[in-house]
Amino acid sequence: MKLLQALFFPPEQPGGVSSMIPYLQDKFNPPHWEMELFSLPKRIRSKGSEPVEFHTFDWHKYEESPIVQKYIQTYRDYLWWTKLRIKRPYDLIHAHHPIAGLAMKEVFPDTPVVQSVHSSYERELILNGRIKENGLEHSFLTSIYRELEYKTDKMITVSRSFVEYLSPFVEHPDNVSVIPNGFDEKRFKPVPHENEVAQLVTVCRLVPAKGLDILLKACAELKSRGLSYVLHIIGDGPIRTELEELAQRLGIYDETIFYGYTLHPEEFMPFFDIFVLPSRAEAFGSVFAEAALCSLALVGTAVGGVAEQIEDGSNGLLVASEDYLGLADALEKVIVDPSFRYELARTGSDHAKSHYSLNRVVHELKKIYLQFH
Rank of each mutant, 00 (worst) to 15 (best):
L4H: 06
L4I: 09
A6M: 04
L7E: 09
P10G: 14
Q13E: 13
P14Y: 04
M20R: 05
D26L: 04
P30T: 11
P31I: 11
H32F: 12
E34A: 13
E34L: 13
M35G: 05
L37N: 14
F38P: 09
S39G: 06
L40G: 03
K42N: 13
S46T: 11
S49R: 15
V52H: 05
F54P: 06
F54T: 04
H55I: 00
T56W: 07
F57T: 07
E64K: 15
S65E: 07
S65P: 00
K70W: 09
K70R: 14
Y71C: 04
L79D: 03
R85G: 04
R85V: 11
P89K: 12
L92A: 08
P98N: 07
G101I: 04
G101W: 03
A103R: 01
S116W: 10
H118G: 09
H118S: 06
S120F: 03
Y121I: 15
E122K: 01
R123Q: 14
E124K: 10
E124Y: 07
K132N: 13
K132V: 08
E133C: 01
N134Q: 14
E137H: 08
F140I: 02
Y150F: 15
Y150C: 09
M155L: 15
S161A: 12
P173G: 13
P173V: 10
N175T: 10
S177Q: 09
S177P: 00
V178C: 07
I179D: 06
G182C: 02
E185M: 11
E185D: 13
E185Q: 10
K186F: 05
K186Q: 14
R187E: 13
V191G: 00
Q199R: 12
Q199C: 01
T202S: 12
T202Q: 01
R205W: 02
L206K: 10
V207H: 12
C219M: 05
A220G: 14
S224H: 11
S224K: 13
R225W: 09
L231W: 11
G235C: 08
P238Y: 06
I252A: 09
Y253K: 15
D254Y: 12
Y259V: 01
Y261W: 14
E267W: 01
F268P: 00
F268G: 00
P270S: 10
P270C: 11
F271Y: 15
I274Q: 01
V276S: 06
V276C: 14
V276T: 14
P278K: 09
E282S: 03
E282Y: 04
E282G: 07
A289D: 08
A289Y: 03
A291Q: 10
S295G: 08
L296M: 08
G304V: 01
A307G: 07
E308S: 08
S314P: 00
L317M: 13
D323R: 07
L325A: 12
G326H: 02
G326I: 00
K333W: 01
P338A: 10
R341G: 04
R341M: 09
R346L: 14
G348M: 06
D350W: 06
A352R: 02
S354P: 00
R360K: 15
V361W: 02
L365Y: 07
K366M: 09
